[in-house]
């Protein structure tokens, strides 16, 4: 069953926390991965790979560069579950 946007956000926040130590409460839709959360490219790819497994979706490499904010990633994952 597809997860809601809130459920994807909280699942993604857990993955970000595990990888970077960033508090899950700080992971909000409007936050930029690079500028606000200071997530480097290697951590970003780790989160992407783990998100694919956790949510059962495919996030193509060429799509990753478009995922600038947490909201972008949540939207992509939510619709990709479809």
């Amino acid at each position: 069953m597809a997860l809601s946007q809130d459920e994807v956000l909280s699942g993604l926040a857990e993955l970000i926390n595990e990888e970077t130590g960033i508090d899950t409460d700080s992971v909000k839709l409007e936050k930029s991965f690079a500028n606000d959360l200071d997530i480097d490219s290697i951590s970003m790819m780790t989160i992407v790979v783990n998100a694919e497994e956790k949510f059962g979706v495919k996030i193509p490499d060429e799509e990753v560069k478009n995922l600038l904010t947490v909201g972008d990633a949540v939207s992509f994952i939510t619709s990709a579950q479809g």
Binding site: I42, M45, V49, N50, E52, E53
Partner: peptide, 13 residues
């Protein structure tokens, strides 16, 4: 078990 996509990017370092 899971294919190349699951090999994490931190593997080499």
């Amino acid at each position: 078990e899971k294919g190349p996509r699951r090999v994490l990017p931190m593997t080499v370092p």
